[in-house]
Write a protein that binds this DNA or RNA. Structure first.
Lengths: 188, 188
DNA sequence: CGCCGCATGTAATTAGTTACATGATTGT
DNA sequence: ACAATCATGTAACTAATTACATGCGGCG
């Protein structure tokens, strides 16, 4: 299960609570691995029980107390070993593309709307990643080794968004040409 | 569950057996949705029970008999309705990128190998999709509407592979620069 | 004779989603 | 008063993976 390893990866240089991890999985790491808070809290308990993580209660004033987790020596070793193992290439699943296989005059307008949502989403992601890049990864050559790996992942995310956005323009044009001519603009 | 709808989509113009569907999910449709034969056979039984598919036993000589499935009227309607609904954007999961977050001099050579495997895989995919495109989607403007949707999906697959391959070159160069200088080539 | 392709499944387990729950504090 | 953010969970369910099973025909 890679979720466990994604969590350990997020804990490489910070000690974080489940809540903080959940937010991390919504942003940076989240492009490559999604997880709900329910999954994360459970994984944290499992990992602690296996001795790969250790926890510490942090009482807080004005906020609920939290439990922060950090890697143990065993955790670091397990993570290192995992990286050296083989990984199967989890192919992606995307129902929007399946929907495209069903294109017709009746659903073209709807697909165009879904596509517009995706464009918006990808555009926001791209802007975010470009900001992160400008701030923290401007000169990749002068980064410490591990940060260079993160830079490469970030770069993959950027390229991916760019490609999707470019494709979406082509797709939009083709969809527009399929929508019946009545009042093709603003079809609910 | 989109698997059910992916299966129905594959049955839009052909009546197929579970085995044939499994192969289809390994090639064309498979870029957007992966499924094992166990999943597919189960889904087929479920869909038939719901009245969305109908089956027919086909005895064969020299081969085991098979059961082919086709869409019912209800199945077509259900599929049409599904396309018009909203779909959440199933974010992708890829442990190779998680591994990149763990880059070090110790694992750079290994990651480079994994990357090479991916490159090979993506290269084969790309060649396959380009062949399909050249054979069946050379002039997208003159295709019937539904085929244009499939063309767009295919195009997304092509662009995606191209992007990954281009990224992989950059990544490979950076990884190479991280591998310790002893005998950096062909480190097992 | 043993392996590969065809064809279809069962069973057990793991992973992930959805719905619901609690309770404090800060902002409108 | 009401919603939002912080913080952590349980329970029920659906989806996916992994392991195992069966049997025929053709190929080397």
């Amino acid at each position: 299960m890679a979720l466990n390893h994604a969590i350990m990866t997020a804990l490489l240089d910070d000690r974080l609570s489940g809540y903080e991890l959940t937010k991390a999985f919504d942003t940076s790491l989240g492009f490559f691995w999604k997880a709900s808070h329910q999954q994360i809290y459970k994984a944290l308990r499992d990992l602690e029980q296996q001795g790969l993580l250790e926890s510490e209660d942090v009482p807080q004033a004005g906020k609920p107390d939290k439990v922060i987790y950090g890697l143990t020596e065993g955790g670091r070793e397990a993570l290192d070993a995992w990286v050296l193992g083989d990984s199967k290439a989890t192919e992606s699943k995307d129902d929007m593309f399946v929907k495209f296989y069903n294109l017709s005059a009746d659903n073209a307008a709807h697909l165009r709307e879904e596509l517009a949502q995706r464009r918006q989403h990808d555009g926001e992601r791209l802007a975010l990643y470009r900001r992160i890049r400008a701030r923290h990864y401007a000169q990749p050559e002068s980064l410490p080794v591990r940060r260079r790996g993160i830079y490469l992942a970030l770069l993959a995310g950027i390229r991916h968004c760019e490609t999707r956005l470019a494709w979406a323009e082509e797709a939009d044009a083709l969809l527009a040409s399929v929508i019946p001519e009545r009042q093709s603009a603003s079809a609910r």
